[in-house]
Amino acid sequence: MPMKRVLVNEPVCMGCHLCEVYCQLNHSTSSDLVKAFKRPEHQNLPRLRIEARNPIFFSLRCQHCAEAPCISACLTGALSRDEKSGAVITDEAKCIGCWTCILACPYGAIKQDTVKHKSVKCDLCQGSKIPACVEHCPNEALVFEEVAEVKSK
């Protein structure tokens, strides 16, 4: 199934971490950046991370694999594929924090939320037209594109 994914134009990723900042904001219960970071009740983890070894920077997140090992590994069925977007998403109610998905993920793209004791990962900002990281990348190093099209470039 062709689906849109977040791709990194690595030569212009400058490791500013703003994708993380806006990811965290978009997954917060507050839409105010300052509150999302400062108030404990609104805090959460960014669902991506920056791999940095100067001069290389790379904004890494879930690849939403066609055959996702995390879905197969999940003990409770908390991870599943969203039929509409093709994204691998987490049902927090079902997640028991066993971290099996983290062991299974070949990209290291799933994080432990040790406060809520749930696994968190990129959901391509379900409900938004463009993922927050892409929208706010100051150098347009992140693009949201159909994978098939990108391969043909």
Binding site: N9, P11, V12, M14, G15
Partner: peptide, 18 residues
């Protein structure tokens, strides 16, 4: 600003598309 430099960690701050 990644303009007047050849430091490869800084030059990527100019995206030629932009």
């Amino acid at each position: 600003w990644g303009i007047c430099t050849t430091d490869l960690g800084l030059t990527r701050r100019i995206n030629p598309d932009i």
